[in-house]
């Protein structure tokens, strides 16, 4: 009865390249995509810009043109515009959550 050496197809522990944390194994490409999607970053940047520019810009744009120097109405308009930005942000944040939930449902249906 001939003896056969057991030839293991699996790599031994020392031969394996293992991942440590987020660093990839040798030969694999590392994942450098940002953790936050680009669309979310663009939304946040747009709202930051709007929060800085819209209220004070609407004040100076309307104080001498639309309201003819009545700075009270222009100031009230600036406050209203600031709240409009806030409402827009809340709506976008709610939609963000809903679209994520729908995406989760779609992946569950696909399985």
């Amino acid at each position: 009865m001939a003896t056969r050496r057991i030839i293991s197809q699996e790599k031994s522990l020392l031969e394996k390249d293992d991942r440590i944390g987020s660093s990839p194994a040798a030969g694999e490409k590392s994942n450098i995509a940002p953790a936050v999607p680009t669309a979310v970053i663009m939304k946040l940047l747009a709202f930051t810009f709007a929060m800085i520019v819209v209220p004070i810009g609407s004040y100076f744009a309307t104080v001498h043109t639309l309201f003819k120097g009545n700075s009270t109405y222009a100031g009230a308009l600036a406050a209203i515009m600031a709240n409009m930005v806030l409402i827009g942000y809340i709506v976008v944040a709610m939609n963000e959550d809903q679209s994520e939930q729908e995406a989760v449902k779609d992946t569950k249906k696909g399985r």
């Binding site: 979310v40 939304k43 946040l44 709202f47 929060m51 209220p55 004070i56 004040y59 100031g75 600036a78 406050a79 600031a82 709240n83 930005v85 806030l86 942000y89 809340i90 976008v92 944040a93 709610m94 963000e96 959550d97």
Partner: peptide, 22 residues
Amino acid sequence: MKCLIPVVMSGIIAVYALVVSV
């Protein structure tokens, strides 16, 4: 994204002060 709402609201407080200062 949703948790940033209080931060945006705090920013509006500063806008009120800015409007009155102007």
